[in-house]
């Protein structure tokens, strides 16, 4: 069984949701990808901040 699929079997509630794949989890802490996301998130937040003042 793939590691990311183990928790599906632990409860009915877990079984009915989505769990990220190993690839998706890796991207979360991949420094190069996250540097890009850092820029994107900051731009999005600045837009919301500017609309709120």
């Amino acid at each position: 069984m793939k590691q990311e699929e183990v928790n599906f079997a632990k409860s009915d509630a877990f079984n009915l949701t989505m769990i990220p794949s190993a690839f998706a989890r890796k991207l979360r802490t991949c420094v190069i990808f996250q540097l890009f996301r850092f820029l994107v998130i900051n731009i999005k937040m600045l837009v919301v901040v500017s609309k709120s003042h």
């Binding site: 599906f8 632990k10 509630a13 877990f14 009915l16 949701t17 989505m18 769990i19 990220p20």
Partner: peptide
């Protein structure tokens, strides 16, 4: 809801 449940399930935290 879907994203919160996903994180709880991924980290093995029942609710």
């Amino acid at each position: 809801k879907l994203f919160a449940e996903s994180l709880f399930a991924e980290r093995d935290v029942p609710w």
